[in-house]
Design a protein around this nucleic acid. Structure first.
Lengths: 211, 211
DNA sequence: TTATATACAAACATGAATGTATGTAAATAG
DNA sequence: CTATTTACATACATTCATGTTTGTATATAA
């Protein structure tokens, strides 16, 4: 066999991750064998075991490829110049709406992200070595809710909200709304139930907050 | 072996379903073997194969044990005397809140329901023969949203809502909120993130709707 | 230039789960 | 009272995924 250069090996690694994502999405994580992934990637199980310890590590690698960039985008869109000298140009509620709309747009346009979400939400079982992922997700929730809260507080200071609405509660409510939307958006693969109206649902959700 | 009477057999059947639920919850559906279930139920695989065709049918039986009663409870609490001559005694928004609070209460108090939700939401993979369940869930969503909508419309007629709030959009928003809450409530097994404040989150969500 | 590490492929060994087939004692039907 | 189901337990055959080991050609370091 032709020995590969370092860049070739990196390409192989990525092809394996891509193959894993696609087969995971079709067969589910536990029904997918490493041989199926290898074949789909045009290699043998030898290559898979060279790059990854086992299916679990391959799964985590696939997940990180999508979820690590997400955190960055969230900070960018949501907390843009929050600490800068001049206040944000767009109003806070619009910034939240933009972030939500943007997330749906990414799911619509980016196949890899869509598939990864689908796997995470309905094609894997969070037990044993995978249980830690659930804890990570829950921990992340607190951070996300805090970011929403900061912006809702900003909106309250600007008098955009109903006076008796608490920013903290609005934040969690929005987070729960979007969690639900993401779950149902992903499961609605033919798009007839939620994907068609997702954008309007987000707009409506934000409108409910405005005084 | 002592041949069992019909009632004994029915008991065995239920013990197998209960065992399945518990092992599913610990090991995940696909990592659970029928032998593990049988042992946990105090029988052998022979009994399991006698009562169920395979793991898939056992899974469906377990699911129905919890989800069929749910539909009934929903109609009872939510649509109580909707068509009756006299209008409902409690105000519509409170009826929605009661239903949501009641659901969380059932999860808190009823182990079987809690375990089944946990399995459905994070311990099974919706592929192949299980994919149909997702479709059922999505179809059900429309029905649930319609029920919410009916009540929000009632609330609007009574002048309880902000005039520019659309009952249909409120209904879906509430459904997404509660979907998200259920998902995170179930995953928050140590209760520190969402279970402690679930009740308040529901109250707040409904308060946001009141004029 | 040569030794070694790399990037896999191929072969091997093992275990575990599944489905089915058979055995069997007691309940039940006639 | 006898024949036939019923409600399982037990034994068997097969498949299949996993992890490991070995082989090997070549890139790369020294």
């Amino acid at each position: 066999m032709v020995r590969k250069t370092k860049e070739d090996a990196e390409i192989t690694r990525k092809r394996i991750i891509n193959a894993a994502r696609e087969v995971f999405c079709i067969k589910g994580v536990s029904r997918t064998s490493l041989d199926q992934i290898a074949t789909h990637a045009g290699v043998t199980r030898g290559a898979v075991y060279w790059h990854f310890k086992n299916k679990t590590e391959l799964f985590h690698a696939m997940r990180e490829q999508v979820f690590l960039p997400l955190i960055d985008r969230m900070d960018d869109t949501l907390l843009a110049n929050i600490d800068s000298s001049k206040p944000s140009t767009t109003d806070p509620l619009t910034r939240i709406e933009d972030f939500l709309q943007e997330t749906i747009q990414v799911l619509n346009e980016h196949l890899e992200t869509r598939q990864t979400y689908e796997i995470m939400m309905s094609k894997c079982e969070y037990v044993d070595e995978f249980a830690t992922v659930l804890q990570q997700i829950l921990s992340n929730c607190s951070g996300i809710a805090e970011k929403y809260e900061t912006i809702y507080q900003e909106a309250k200071n600007l008098g955009l909200l109903h006076p008796n609405h608490d920013p903290k509660q609005l934040a969690v409510d929005t987070h729960l709304f979007f969690t639900g939307l993401l779950h149902l958006w992903v499961k609605d693969s033919d798009g007839t139930h939620f994907r068609i109206q997702a954008s309007q649902l987000i707009s409506a959700h934000i409108k409910f907050r405005r005084k």
